[in-house]
């Protein structure tokens, strides 16, 4: 946003990304983020913000700047090695008619 004032001097603490596991056996999924001074406070804040109704049985918090992500602009060439290999899918292979259990 355009702004003629200096950035805030108030501390909200660094940003942590929050991942929640909703049930036994399920993967951890990104839920959102929280601000917190340290890891312990980040976990407590994440619990209060993202698990008020039993939505989680496990939480991960990760410093947001520790996450390395692919870039949307390079997505084409970056994922290309996986896009042109039809032989990695079972449908690529012909099976004699009538054979079951394959």
């Amino acid at each position: 946003m355009t702004n003629d004032r200096p950035p805030s001097t108030d501390t909200q603490g660094p940003l942590w990304e929050v991942f929640t596991q909703e049930e036994q056996g399920a993967p951890h999924r990104h839920a959102g983020s929280v601000h917190a001074a340290d890891a312990e406070q980040a976990l407590q804040n994440a619990r209060d913000v993202y698990a008020r109704r039993g939505e989680a049985i496990s939480l991960w918090v990760v410093p947001a700047d520790a996450i390395v992500a692919s870039t949307p602009g390079d997505a084409g060439p970056f994922f290309d090695p996986g896009n042109d290999k039809a032989y990695r899918h079972p449908q690529f292979y012909k099976v004699p008619r009538g054979v079951r259990g394959l």
Binding site: R5, P7, S8, D10, Q12, G32, H35, D48, V49, R52
Partner: peptide, 29 residues
């Protein structure tokens, strides 16, 4: 519980707003 939810809702949306490149501390200011 309802009032606590409203705080949570504020935080969900601030968190979403920060993905646009703004800082929550500035928004609160």
């Amino acid at each position: 519980a309802k009032v606590q939810d409203e705080a949570g809702h504020g935080l969900y949306i601030y968190c979403g707003a920060e993905t646009l490149g703004v800082d929550r501390a500035d928004l609160i200011d």
